[in-house]
Design a protein around this nucleic acid. Structure first.
Length: 340
RNA sequence: UCUUCCGUCA
């Protein structure tokens, strides 16, 4: 099982994680030279559950869980923690909580899975409450715990509490990982404390695209478009996220022209636009009455088979309507699945 | 070889 798990892990981190399930099936029917069949072990199931969580395959996850329990891995801590994470990802928070509470095996990772799960699902207050419980039970938080509670502060726009956590992190001399620094940065930005964000940003010796994008968004949101743009230009590398951030910043500031010119620049740099890019650019077209670009985007969407969901559909309808082509607007409107 | 973390949209 050891070598199978290694391959399984590789596949899970690849571009085609769903292949992992095929390998798992093979694993179940595999019989080795001596005629001994292979058993998935307690490392196999967490891997599979994680992949289910990532792909939101709730049904399949429950099936795999059934296998794990049948093979008596129902008391394995890694399986439990993976299960908590899986349930949280499927939005089954109550069940995740139940598994956690009824679990006879519980460690820091279990707490982290639950806290971060609640925080990511937008239930900040509950995340913080669980954190309090954790401290009552005298479990020491680590930097991953802190990411969860800082994220909760971001949602609540609770700058005061966020600062307290930042202080805690410093006092306990916790490892300031990049994700944690990014989470703090995001907290300061969303709470409107750009000064603190800037200081932290400048002190970070290692920065990722997330770090830069967080700052770009921060300046843009407060209307400092030129500062945002300078940061954007200074970025050592850019994937679709920063491009989207900058484009949408221009759109929100009613600077449709700059938005579309960035859109062109982005393509020149060979960055693949996605659905978010399209929505922003369509808004820009609406602002400018740029029907030609709008039609071009519409074709692009069709050519690349980007799914016409409500958001994208609405943006298209809006673009056609505002650019004066009501007939086309109606036509697209009728094509939108599950309208609201 | 196992579990937990960050940024963009009408």
């Amino acid at each position: 099982a050891f070598s199978w798990n290694i391959v399984l892990r590789g596949i899970s981190e690849s571009h085609y994680p769903s292949e992992a399930f095929l390998l798992y099936k093979e694993m179940l029917i595999f019989v080795n030279f001596s005629g001994v069949s292979l058993r998935p072990d307690n490392y196999t199931f967490p891997l599979l559950l994680k992949t289910c969580a990532k792909l939101l395959l709730c049904e399949l996850g429950h099936q795999i869980l059934g296998h794990a329990f049948k093979m008596n891995y129902d008391r394995d801590i890694f399986v439990h923690n993976a299960l908590i994470h899986f349930l949280v990802s499927c939005g089954e928070l109550e069940d995740a909580r139940k598994v956690f509470e009824e679990s006879c095996v519980r460690d820091l990772v279990s707490w982290n899975s639950l806290i971060n799960g609640y925080a990511k699902s937008g239930r900040a207050m509950e995340a913080l409450r669980i954190y309090e419980e954790m401290k009552m039970e005298e479990v020491d938080p680590d930097e991953i715990t802190m990411i969860g509670v800082v994220t909760a502060c971001t949602q609540l726009e609770d700058l005061k509490l966020g600062r307290e956590f930042h202080q805690d992190i410093r006092c306990r001399a916790m490892n300031m990982s990049i994700p944690l620094a990014n989470a703090l940065l995001d907290m300061y930005v969303k709470c409107g404390d750009l000064e603190e964000a800037k200081e932290l940003f400048e002190r970070m010796e290692e920065k990722t695209m997330v770090t830069w994008t967080t700052m770009v968004v921060g300046y843009a949101k407060l209307g400092h478009l030129n500062v945002a743009r300078k940061l954007f230009n200074a970025m050592p590398e850019k994937d679709v996220f920063p491009w989207n951030a900058m484009i949408s910043a221009y759109v929100q500031a009613q600077h449709g022209k700059e938005a579309l010119s960035l859109f062109h620049e982005m393509q020149a740099m060979k960055v693949e636009p996605d659905e978010v890019t399209m929505v922003s650019c369509l808004s820009a077209c609406s602002q400018l009455g740029a029907l030609d670009v709008g039609i071009w985007i519409h074709r692009y969407i069709e050519k690349h088979n980007l799914s016409l969901n409500v958001v994208l559909g609405t943006a298209l309808v809006d673009m056609y309507a505002k650019c004066g082509n009501i007939g086309k607007a109606f036509q697209v409107f009728r094509e939108i699945p599950c309208r609201n």
